[in-house]
């Protein structure tokens, strides 16, 4: 694969007071790559995403990013309860001063993409957890980011919604090939989605293992039961066990 780094971390460390959250973190994500990040709780995964987005700055080290168009999906849907689904979808367009007609049209398109067209005029209060997450996904799709950051977005969902959203995300990725860093606690989800899985350890957080996942996109749900998938997932789980 031609090296076309979207974001590069060079020897990055982050300290909060005297806690070293991340140390000697060196890694890069190429454009079009889907990287999953797993690790024990508190190891610094969210911190990596916050660094990648520019929300926080490294204490030492360097981060280089070749794009400013970054999408961020949080663990909670974090919709604005006072806005309808469509208006929530328009938010980032508003913040980027896209004109109203254009952003409304784009919002309708992304809602269509995540299957929420029929709920455009509903308030978040009226949606299920899975639908809220879809709306949140739609919101960050509006600006067609080059780099997508996901912080355990499906962690709070039931198994069925989660599997369905995994497939929808894969379809989106197969279509658009945005670069991604996807944080999750589920080894199965990490392997199923990604081209590459990174395993982090804690105190201080750094990458201890890396696995590439050879399956093509779009992926068929049945690959989950293939021996190759099981083997990779097994190795990831083992590395995670060791890191914890």
């Amino acid at each position: 694969m031609a090296a076309n780094p979207l974001i590069t971390f060079t020897d990055v460390s982050v300290r909060f007071g005297h806690i070293t959250a991340i140390n000697a973190f060196t890694h890069s994500v190429d454009s079009g790559e889907f990287v999953s990040l797993v690790g024990p709780s508190g190891c610094g995964k969210s911190t990596v995403l916050r660094l990648a987005s520019g929300l926080i700055q490294p204490t030492t080290g360097d981060i280089e990013r070749s794009t400013d168009n970054v999408g961020y999906v949080f663990q909670d849907p974090t919709l604005m309860p006072w806005r309808t689904v469509r208006k929530n979808g328009e938010l980032l367009g508003e913040l980027e001063d896209i004109d109203p007609g254009e952003r409304r049209q784009r919002a309708d398109e992304v809602l269509e993409l995540v299957g929420l067209s029929d709920f455009a005029n509903h308030y978040p209060l009226q949606l299920s957890g899975g639908m809220k997450m879809r709306a949140s996904l739609a919101r960050s799709l509006l600006l067609e980011p080059d780099l997508f950051l996901f912080d355990e977005p499906f962690g709070a969902l039931d198994q069925i919604s989660r599997a369905r959203l995994n497939d929808e995300l894969i379809a989106l990725y197969a279509d658009r090939r945005f670069g991604s860093i996807f944080v999750t606690h589920s080894v199965d989800e990490a392997v199923y989605l990604a081209t590459r899985v990174l395993v982090m350890c804690s105190r201080p957080g750094k990458i201890v293992a890396e696995f590439s996942v050879p399956f093509d996109y779009p992926r068929d749900p049945s690959i989950r039961y293939s021996p190759e998938f099981t083997k990779i997932a097994g190795s990831v789980a083992e590395a995670l066990e060791e890191a914890s």
Binding site: S53, V70, Y72, F74, T78, M80, L92, L95, E96
Partner: peptide
């Protein structure tokens, strides 16, 4: 929400 604040900051 804190994360909504983050979105406003990012943009």
């Amino acid at each position: 929400d804190r994360e909504l604040h983050s979105l406003f900051t990012l943009h």
